Amino acid sequence: MSESTATRPPVSLLRVLAGRRAALTAGGVALGSVLLLAVFQQLTGLHVFAIPYIATAAVLALAPGAPLATPRAVLISYPVSVLVALAVTELFGHSHYSTGVAVALTVLALALLKAPHVPAVAAAAFVGLQSPGAWYLLDPMVPGVVLVLAVPLLVSLLKIGYKYPAG
């Protein structure tokens, strides 16, 4: 037995499980958020089970301390993204080109506002491609944002090692 192996403490089961707790908690937060979106859509008919909100749920679950995961970034980025895309779509119609312009202007606006949240840019792309109209603000944007913020905030209250917002 070499000296380096002899001096290493044995790995305890509790230590292994503690290392996995963060991964399990992130998975639980993501699952809770996505299930909440699915149930809410089933009950209300509002279209909240959508890629941008599912992506936000993943970001909040995996990286609650990242700048793009702050409640401020989420709350600012979605309305800005949707409003920019609605304005571009109104001016130029919906196409791949206007979607590209909407995405670029959204990224610029989010950078200037210091509110980075990449999944919200997907909402701008959706608006640019589909042209759903101003109703998108109420279905699904407002409820989608509220729902994806709810689960991380509630899980954080449980004091199980997941803190949102971090800091």
Score class of each variant (00 low, 15 high):
Val11Cys: 08
Met1Ala: 14
Pro132Gly: 01
Ser4Leu: 15
Ala111Gln: 15
His94Tyr: 03
Phe49Val: 10
Val127Tyr: 06
Pro9Asp: 01
Ala85Glu: 06
Ser12Ile: 12
Ala122Gly: 11
Thr5His: 13
Ile51Gly: 12
Tyr164Lys: 02
Ile51Trp: 14
Pro116His: 13
Thr99His: 04
Pro143Asn: 03
Ala6Val: 07
Leu43Asp: 00
Pro132Lys: 06
Ala85His: 05
Met141Trp: 12
Val11Trp: 15
Pro152Asp: 06
Ser33Gln: 07
Glu90Tyr: 15
Thr106Val: 03
Thr99Pro: 08
Leu153Trp: 02
Val142Arg: 02
Ala61Glu: 05
Ala58Cys: 15
Phe92Trp: 14
Ala120Tyr: 09
Val88Trp: 01
Ser95Gln: 04
Ala61Pro: 07
Glu3Ala: 14
Ala122Lys: 00
Leu46Ala: 04
Lys163Tyr: 10
Leu154Ser: 06
Ala124Trp: 02
His117Asn: 13
Gly128Trp: 02
Ala73Phe: 13
Leu147Met: 01
Leu110His: 06
Ile160Gly: 07
Ala109Gln: 04
Gly65Val: 09
Ala30Arg: 05
Val145Glu: 11
Ala69Lys: 10
Val80Phe: 01
Phe49Thr: 10
Leu17Asp: 00
Ala58Ser: 12
Phe92Pro: 06
Leu60Arg: 05
Ser77Leu: 01
Leu43Ile: 00
Pro64Glu: 13
Ala6Phe: 01
Gly45Ile: 08
Ala111Gly: 13
Ala134Thr: 11
Phe40Asp: 08
His96Gln: 11
Ile76Cys: 12
Ala122Cys: 04
Ala58Asn: 08
Val101Gly: 07
His96Tyr: 15
Arg20Glu: 11
Val127Arg: 05
Ala123Gln: 10
Val84Asp: 02
Ser12Lys: 14
Ile160Asn: 02
Leu91Met: 13
Gln130Asn: 04
His47Phe: 02
Val39Ser: 10
Gln42His: 10
Val121Phe: 01
Pro9Met: 03
Ser4Gly: 07
Ala18Leu: 12
Ala111Asp: 14
Thr7Ala: 14
Phe126Tyr: 08
Arg8Glu: 11
Phe40Ser: 09
Ala55Tyr: 03
Tyr53Leu: 11
Leu86Pro: 07
Gly161Val: 10
Leu68Trp: 13
Arg15Glu: 15
Leu14Asp: 14
Val145Asn: 08
Gly93Glu: 01
Arg15Ile: 11
Val121Ala: 04
Val59Thr: 10
Gly128Gln: 00
Val127Asn: 06
Thr70Gln: 15
Ser131Ile: 00
Phe126Asp: 03
Gly19Cys: 10
Gly32Asn: 07
Ala55Leu: 12
Leu108Arg: 00
Tyr164Gly: 03
Val39Gly: 11
Phe92Asn: 03
Leu157Tyr: 03
Gly27Trp: 02
Val101Pro: 07
Ala150Thr: 11
Val142His: 04
Leu158Asp: 02
Leu129Met: 06
Leu83Trp: 05
Leu83Pro: 00
Leu108Gly: 06
Lys114Glu: 14
Ala63Lys: 13
Ser156Glu: 08
Val145Phe: 10
Phe92Ala: 15
Ser95Trp: 04
Leu36Arg: 08
Leu105Thr: 06
Thr7Gln: 12
Thr44Phe: 04
Ala115Arg: 10
Ala85Phe: 00
